[in-house]
């Protein structure tokens, strides 16, 4: 399943990094603590968070994550979007909470 498939299935908004929409998503990680993601997420995961600043993309890139999913209708800052475009790692968003979107992504990945 690619980021594009997840976007379609969960009705997400694509903010940036659309060149990376064909990246495969192999799991998810939900956290707002950067070191938690750094230490525990792994390559190909979609990262669910409420953090919107640029450092999110530094971590997504260093960890080779597939996408960043922003919750609660939060939108990425301008320089965060630029970084996302440059790294070709999509930032997508949802109006749902972290709990809701994590559950839906989990179901989606397990059923595919």
């Amino acid at each position: 399943m690619t980021v594009k498939d997840v976007v379609k299935a969960l009705n997400l908004t694509v903010y940036s990094g659309s060149d990376g929409l064909d990246k495969p998503v192999n799991g998810g990680y939900t956290s707002d603590l950067l070191s938690d993601v750094m230490g525990n997420a792994s390559e190909g995961m979609a990262w669910i968070t409420l953090q919107t600043h640029k450092n999110v993309m530094a971590i997504a890139s260093l960890k080779d994550l597939s996408a960043v999913i922003l919750v609660n209708n939060l939108q990425p800052l301008e320089d965060t979007q630029q970084y996302s475009n440059q790294e070709q790692i999509p930032i997508v968003g949802t109006t749902l909470s972290a709990f809701e979107i994590s559950g839906r992504l989990h179901n989606l990945l397990n059923s595919s």
Binding site: D32, L33, L34, S35, D36, G39, T49, Q51, N55, V56
Partner: peptide
């Protein structure tokens, strides 16, 4: 608030 400073940095280094 930015998600830094959770007291996980040095433990992360030690673990990796």
């Amino acid at each position: 608030e930015m998600g830094f400073g959770a007291g996980m940095g040095l433990p992360n280094i030690k673990a990796h």
